[in-house]
Structures are given as C-alpha cells and as structure tokens.
Amino acid sequence: MNDVVLLLGSYPLTWGRLVIGMAASSLFLLTIVTLLLMRTRRERAFEAAVSAERAREMDDKVAELTRIQAEMTGRMQTIAEVFGTRQSDFVRLISERIDGLQHRVGQGLEATTRHQTENLSRLHERLAVIDAAQKNLKDLTGEIVGLKDVLSNKQSRGAYGQGRMEAIIRDGLPSGAFEFQPTLSNRMRPDCLVRLPGDERGLVVDAKFPLEGFTQFREAKGEEARSRAAAKVRSDMLVHVKDIAEKYLIPGETQDIAMMFVPAESIYADLSEHFDDVVQKAHRARVVIVSPSLLALAIQVMQALVRDARIREEAHIIQVEVQKLLEDVERLDGRVAKLDAHFRQAQDDVAQIRISTDKIVKRGQKIETLEFDEGEAGARAELLRLQGRSLRAVE
C-alpha cells in the first residue's frame, strides 16, 4: 500500500493515497450527482407547480371567457330584440315620413298647378291688356295724325289751344273765378279772363299762338333756311305780343300783365332755348309766355288765393258763431252757479234738520232713562197713544 506508483514531481503517489484519492473523488462525484438530482427534482417540482398554476389560470380564463361569451350572447340577444324593435319603429317612422313627404309633394304639386293656372290666367289677362293697349296705340296714332292735321290748320289749331287752356283752368278754379270769351270795354274779346279775389281787375289769358314759324324752323335744312325761319318766328311772336299788350292790357280793368299760352311743352322748350330775346321782350311788354305746366302751376297758385279768400270770408261767420257760443256758455255758467247755490242751501237745510232730529233723539233717550211710577208710566203711555205716537216713533 505504501509502494510508490507514480511520482508527481517530487511528490510520490502511493497506492493508499491513490485509493483515498479515488474514494474522495467518487464521494465528490456522488455528492455532485446527488446535488444535481435534487436540483433536477426541485426544478421538476417547480415546473409542475408552474404548470398547475398555468392550468388553473387557463381554467379561470376559460371560465371567464365562457362567462363573457354568455354575457355577450345575452347582450347580443338584447341588442337583437332592441334592434328589432327599433327597426320596426324605424320602418314605421320611415313610412310616416314617406307618407308625409308624399302628402307635401302632392300639396306642392297642387299649389304649383294652381299657381301656374293663376299665372296663365294673369298672362291671358295681360295679353288682353296688351291687345287693348295696341288697339289704343293704333287709335292714338290715328289721333296724332288727326292732331297733325288739326295743327296744320290755323283755325283748328286755335280751337285746340283754346280747348286745352279751358280744360286746365276749369280743373283748377271754381266756376265763378273765370270767364271765357268775355267782352272788354274796348270791345275786345280775350280767350279767358281770370278774376282774382279782392281785385276787380281780371287776368287775361290768350290761347292763340303763331305756330307756322316754329314748324318751318324745325323742318329747315341748312343754316340759311333756319335763319329765315328763326326771323319769321321772332317777327310773328313780337307781333302777337304787341297785339296782346295793346288789346288786353287796360288800366283799371285788367291786370298789369297778361299770359300767352303755348299749347305744347316742346314748343315752349324751343322758344326758351333758341329765342330767349323774344321771351325777354315779351316780359318787358308785360306778357308772360306760359306752357301747359306753367299755366297749371299758376292756376294752382290762384286756386290757393281763392281758397284763402273764402276762408277769410267764412272766418268772420265763424267768429260770430263763436261769440254767440261764448255768450251761451256764460249764461249756462250763471245758471249753473244759481243751481249750485240752491244745492248748497238745500244741503244747509238738510244739515239743520239732522241737527234737530239728533236733539229730539237725545231728549227721547233721556226721557227713557227717567224712573216713573207705574201709574205715571201708564198715564204717559196712554197719553202718547192718544196723541197717535209711540216712544219708538219718538226715537
């Protein structure tokens, strides 16, 4: 056992030491194997526990999933029922909406049809009006042609101007404020004489107007022809202005001015634009040239003057009536004062009567409070009875 088997450097290795070393090695290996087995067993037990825990958790999760599935199934059934109910309500609502829409569409179509029918009837009426207007236009065209023929004739033109002037004056003034074709003191007869309130002198309105020169002036071609026509217009106008001033301006009988009526606004515009010198000379001759609109304006002013004069005339009558009314009011006031005095006297009399009755009542109460013998009381009652009164009546 002590024999050397192997030298390890300077250290001799014997069989005993070798056996001890091998035994120690075997024990070490056995210990290691044991430890490894115990570790393996612990790991397997841990894995088994982990597996069991995982299985338990899996079972819990499956149970939870089963519960959730059952809840989802119930909720799905509830949702299906609610959806079915809502679907029926939705279908009913859609049906009602469709019915309402159809009703509104039907009403809209009916209203549109009625509106279109009304528009067509109005269109027919307007077409009838247009036809009537066309007819009137044709008639007016014929009247214009006839008016042209009238204006081409001097006498007809004078009658036309006279008629238009008379229409304007008749529309604006009362019948007593004007006179057509009167005879003046110099035996001249103006077309119209307007009498203003508060003035005996009349305002002369002449309706005769020289139109030939204006016609030539408008139809003139070239400067020379236009100049000749303008000269004729000036000559005719000044002659007519002179005739009016000499014939119709009579001191003390007519106004200081006279009016020359132009029957057309266009003629008056041409006269004011191209013949201002004629207008100024007419003004200096105290002759005012007026168009239909200016004559209507002047007539309105005269109408206001006539109305004011009538108001002043009626104002005196109103003042007299107001004075009489004031006198009646004064008499009524005196009578009311007398009646009030009577009422006051009556109130005083009633107050005196109330005082007397109060005194009588108080004395009756005092008499009631007095004590009488039975005989005296009976005698007093008999006396009151004989006199036709009672104690209560006295009270």
Rank of each mutant, 00 (worst) to 15 (best):
L93A: 15
E81N: 05
S10F: 10
L384G: 07
R201T: 08
G213I: 05
D171L: 10
M165W: 05
T183C: 02
M38D: 07
V278Q: 02
L37K: 13
E57R: 09
I257C: 01
S25E: 05
L295D: 11
R42W: 07
A282Q: 02
Q155M: 01
D277W: 00
A245K: 06
D171A: 15
L184V: 00
Q345C: 06
R75C: 03
L271K: 01
R344V: 10
W15K: 14
E200R: 14
A269H: 12
S272M: 06
V241R: 01
T78W: 02
S272D: 08
V82P: 00
G176H: 14
K148G: 15
L65G: 06
I289A: 02
M22P: 00
L18F: 14
V205W: 03
V50K: 09
I169L: 12
Q181W: 09
A132E: 15
L383Q: 02
P190D: 00
Q107V: 08
S152W: 04
A167E: 13
M259A: 05
F180R: 04
P174L: 05
E179L: 14
Q319D: 15
M259Y: 15
E118I: 04
E47I: 03
D256A: 11
S121A: 12
A167P: 00
E64Q: 14
L29C: 13
Q347H: 03
V329E: 06
L391C: 08
D373L: 08
F217W: 15
T183H: 02
F343H: 09
A296N: 09
A258L: 04
D60E: 14
G375T: 12
K135T: 15
E53G: 06
R42D: 13
G388T: 03
K242Q: 01
I79F: 10
A229P: 12
M76H: 08
Y11S: 08
T215A: 09
Q365A: 11
E212H: 03
S293R: 12
D139W: 04
G334A: 12
L35A: 13
E327Q: 02
E374S: 11
L294G: 12
T215I: 08
A351P: 00
G388R: 06
D171M: 09
S26N: 06
A315I: 05
S356Y: 04
L383A: 07
A111P: 00
D348S: 10
S293K: 11
D277Y: 00
S156K: 10
R104F: 03
L305R: 13
L305S: 12
L386D: 08
P12C: 04
F180K: 03
A24I: 09
I169G: 02
G161R: 03
V105T: 08
P292K: 06
Q155V: 05
E43W: 02
L391P: 12
A229V: 11
I318H: 08
H124A: 13
I353C: 06
S227R: 14
A111T: 05
L391R: 14
V82N: 13
R331V: 00
Q255G: 12
A258K: 04
I168L: 14
R310W: 05
E179A: 11
R41N: 11
E200Y: 09
L140N: 05
R385G: 07
L325H: 03
M237V: 01
R56L: 07
L65R: 15
A132R: 14
S51I: 08
H115S: 12
L151G: 13
L326R: 13
V145Y: 10
D236C: 05
